[in-house]
Design a protein around this nucleic acid. Structure first.
Length: 334
DNA sequence: AAAATCAGCAACCGCAGTGAA
DNA sequence: TTTCACTGCGGTTGCTGATTT
């Protein structure tokens, strides 16, 4: 048996709202509030609309201080940065942009911002040599920033859960094996060592590392809803099969970054938390094969345009490292 | 000028989480 | 503890105006 519908669909009006309906709803809510019950609201207002429809109309259009129109560059940056960090969690992103609705931001990303980023960076890319030298040049600076960051933001934002694919974007400055060993020893973590000198740790342990070792990836601190364990060795192996080589050791020699094809094509990814597959595909095409004919949609083209705005610094991890062509978003100024 | 295509966006749908009974 | 009504969210759909052919 299916779930009972929230309203009698045969007797509710659907489609675009008329100005009369808008003013009725607006006037009623401004005078009486929602009463905490959207389902009964249409009756009270005298509208033949579904309660959910009323709620949506109010939240996305009628409520005070809604901002419409062009997004500013700063807003663009915030959206991009948060998207790369937490994926398509539009309500959280919207919370960083007063006056903007999640629906607005979602539409803006899907129809314009993604394309805008691709286009802009394609132009940039034409004038830049294909080396990762700028990353190396700033390596120490970034490490220093990491150190500072973890020193001051150890309790950052445990409220979020991070999509598994997000690891793709947030890793990797993974500790080397011996770094982990030293870290574990120094901090009394109980790591399990495999015979192949790989280190297996749980999410909790990784969380502990992250708060004490500035080299660990910040985003992993928040993997608290992921039950699987993770492994850091020469690469990082999240549960979804995405494989990314680390890290500091191979800074100049990234060439084995890849994505598990099944994971990439899987339709079973958590629908509300996945990072846009098209973006994953961009990453895939730009990292697995450096001879790809179509480099117009690579991750390389998206990430450099994203600067890290101070206003969200307290909320999400600011550091993203992504193999040879990627940048530390927000740390390496263009 | 008409038809086809594209882009933007409002609205809908259905799932998951929450809290009250 | 279970059930269920309700809310909130993200993905998707489809309408409309703009642009291209």
């Amino acid at each position: 048996m299916g779930r009972a519908p929230c309203c009698d669909k045969a007797n509710v009006k659907r489609g675009p709202w008329s100005p009369e309906e808008d003013s009725k709803l607006k006037a009623y809510i401004e005078q009486h509030g929602t009463g905490g019950n959207w389902i009964t609201l249409p009756q009270k207002v005298g509208l033949k609309r579904c309660g959910k429809s009323c709620r949506l109309r109010w939240l996305n259009y009628l409520r005070p201080n809604i901002k419409h129109g062009e997004f500013t560059d700063e807003e663009d940056n915030i959206i991009c940065t948060l998207y790369m960090s937490i994926g398509s969690r539009w309500s959280i992103i919207a919370a960083q942009l007063p006056g903007r609705t999640d629906n607005d931001i979602k539409n803006y990303w899907n129809t314009r911002l993604k394309k805008k980023l691709l286009l802009c960076n394609k132009q940039r890319k034409d004038h830049r040599p294909r080396t990762g030298s700028y990353i190396n040049h700033n390596k120490l600076e970034v490490m220093k920033e990491h150190e500072n960051f973890f020193a001051t933001h150890q309790t950052i934002n445990n409220a979020y859960s991070w999509p598994s694919q997000q690891i793709l974007f947030s890793t990797l400055i993974a500790p080397q094996n011996h770094d982990l060993a030293e870290s574990s020893s120094a901090n009394s973590h109980n790591f399990q060592y495999s015979s192949t000198d790989e280190v297996y740790i749980s999410q909790d342990q990784l969380c502990q590392i992250s708060s004490t070792n500035q080299l660990a990836s910040m985003n992993l601190v928040n993997g608290n809803t992921c039950n699987s364990s993770v492994m850091i060795s020469n690469g990082y192996y999240p549960s979804n099969g995405v494989v990314i080589n680390n890290g500091l050791q191979e800074y100049n020699n990234y060439n084995s970054v890849g994505l598990d094809h099944d994971a990439l094509n899987s339709t079973s990814t958590t629908h509300s938390q996945q990072v846009d597959k098209s973006v994953l595909e961009m990453v895939n095409s730009s990292t697995i094969s450096t001879t790809s004919q179509d480099q117009s949609t690579s991750w390389e083209e998206l990430s450099p345009l994203v600067n890290y705005p101070p206003s969200v610094f307290e909320t999400v991890s600011p550091y993203y490292v992504f193999e040879e062509q990627s940048l530390y978003m927000g740390l390496l100024k263009q």
